[in-house]
Nucleic acid binder design. Structure first.
Length: 156
DNA sequence: GCCAACGTTGGC
DNA sequence: GCCAACGTTGGC
């Protein structure tokens, strides 16, 4: 039996990789996650078809910029083996990689960024993980939170 | 650029 | 296994 679609929020600094980059690329490997909690969500819980709020962090302003979708289950993050990468991890081996990541595909861009300030003001979004564990770069959101965010954006 | 929050590392 | 020191994230 297929499991229900789950909803996520994933952060990226737009200076590094924005929703526009994803739009151009179509799909991308979500590499560079080096936090165990974030990694575990990708390994254990993400399924193809899960919906993702694409969040621009460290931006001016920061906020949710659009929607992506999980297009491939987690597999080894190649950057952990690349000595020249800032994500290189000497403790990883090809037989026992420490870091895995999913691929996501572009779905849509919001007409308007839903800023962090708006998220903070919206009562229906007050329990979002974003507001309580601001450092987590891959985090679950509820269906309601997902839909409310989309609603605030005025569509895509 | 500052700094609070918090995850990770490493000494014991 | 505790916890201080350290490094990083990310808002402002």
């Amino acid at each position: 039996m297929p499991q229900k679609t789950k909803y996520w929020l994933m952060k990226s600094e737009p200076d590094v990789y924005s929703i526009e980059n994803l739009k151009k690329d179509g799909t991308t490997r979500w590499e560079g996650v080096r936090n165990y909690m974030a990694r575990n969500f990708m390994i254990r819980d993400m399924q193809i078809g899960d919906k993702v709020l694409f969040y621009h962090s460290n931006a001016n302003p920061s906020g949710i910029a659009g929607i992506a979708e999980v297009s491939e289950l987690a597999s080894a993050d190649p950057t952990q083996f690349d000595k020249k990468s800032e994500y290189y991890d000497p403790k990883s081996t090809s037989t026992e990689p420490r870091w895995l990541c999913v691929k996501v595909k572009y779905v849509s861009s919001f007409k308007r960024l839903v800023t962090l300030a708006e998220i903070k003001k919206e009562p229906l979004l007050k329990d979002m993980v974003l507001l309580h564990n601001s450092r987590l770069s891959v985090q679950p959101v509820t269906k309601l939170e997902f839909e409310r965010s989309l609603g605030l954006s005025g569509g895509s």
